[in-house]
């Protein structure tokens, strides 16, 4: 078990190293950031000076070495636009994104798992077919369009939810959160709902597939032969077996949610990471993009790691290996 954990940790570091190379290379192709820092009427000499200060005049391997060294010390450079350390900017926006992502995840789990279990346990029923068709529509919807429709209906037409912003925040543990205020919740509902739809559909389909697989198993019938009720068998014996694949998907979806938060945050003017990212892309604010990418990569790798650990906890068969 310890050996396995160490092996996984080592893998994580290797992947993050590879990601840092890729991010670095990608950034080198993303236009010339020097024009972001110099005034429009800068002279050649001023530009060359700026280039030197930014380290852009060195060779690629040298630039990468500097990049890596800075990164390991937590120094990603300053944002060209905000003139603040890029890491601080990102960390400041992180809670807002985490809020909508976590709320979206919970929303999709709360809706998808029971519906998926139902559809998987009663595959022939009309309700199950309706659920499955609904989930297919969910996968087929462009999430940004759904967000717009929600804004149009709930904000423009009926005026029941605000269309943008985070609402009131309170400071908890040094950062500002919306989920601890009523107004914050009022603001968080629409963006999180928008974000959750795709994940909801996918989770639902995986849960159903897992459930259908499980209902065919002998141990389900054996449990019924012991006198356990149909519901008891489904939830007591089936659900946990069926949810094993769901855990993986849950992990992967968390990553997707962070990615799609860029779009949702743009629509709802939600001041999170995604909005910052899009703004930074428009302004070629390289350091911010780099921190974002590295942060997202780290989150991904850590989630995958946690999912694997969670697996061994859910499935005793893996624990022994």
């Amino acid at each position: 078990m310890l050996g396995y954990t160490l092996k996984r940790l080592l893998q994580m570091i290797v992947v993050l190293g590879a990601v840092s190379v890729i991010v670095f290379l990608m950034m080198s192709f993303t236009g010339d950031p020097v024009f972001m820092v110099v005034p429009i009427d800068a002279t050649e000499a001023e530009i060359a000076q700026a280039r030197r200060i930014l380290g852009l005049d060195r060779s690629m391997p040298e630039q990468y070495a500097i990049f890596l060294k800075g990164m390991l010390q937590g120094d990603f450079g300053r944002s060209y636009v905000f003139r603040e350390p890029a890491l601080d900017l990102i960390l400041e926006r992180l809670p807002a994104t985490l809020e909508i992502v976590v709320v979206a995840m919970l929303m999709s789990a709360v809706v998808a798992i029971p519906l998926g279990v139902y559809a998987g346990a009663n595959p022939g029923r009309t309700e199950s077919r309706a659920i499955m068709t609904g989930s297919l529509v969910g996968i087929s919807l462009p999430s940004f369009w759904v967000g717009m429709m929600l804004i149009f209906l709930f904000a423009v037409k009926w005026n029941v939810f605000p269309s943008s912003g985070r609402g009131d925040t309170v400071e908890v543990m040094g950062t500002r959160w919306s989920i601890f205020t009523a107004d914050g919740w009022h603001h968080i509902i629409l963006p999180s709902l928008t974000l959750s739809l795709g994940t909801m559909a996918i989770l639902l389909r995986i849960t159903r597939a897992g459930m259908m697989e499980v209902t065919r198993q002998d141990y389900m019938k054996f449990a019924r032969a012991k006198g356990v009720s149909r519901r008891g068998v489904l939830y007591g014996h089936g659900l946990r077996n069926a949810l094993i694949p769901v855990v993986t998907i849950f992990g992967l979806q968390l990553g997707d949610l962070i990615a799609f938060a860029t779009i949702t945050e743009t629509i709802f003017a939600w001041p999170g990471l995604g909005k910052l990212l899009i703004d930074s892309i428009y302004r070629a604010d390289r350091p911010v993009i780099v921190v974002y990418l590295m942060l997202v990569a780290t989150i991904f790798v850590v989630i995958n790691f946690l999912v694997d650990i969670l697996y061994t906890w859910i499935d005793p068969r893996i624990r022994v290996k």
Partner: peptide, 21 residues
């Protein structure tokens, strides 16, 4: 290995970065 690294990111995000470049 390239595939592994790539699969650890959502397609949408990769496409977004490439397009921004």
């Amino acid at each position: 290995r390239i595939a592994d690294v790539q699969l650890s990111f959502p397609s949408m995000l990769i496409a977004l970065f490439l397009m921004s470049a």
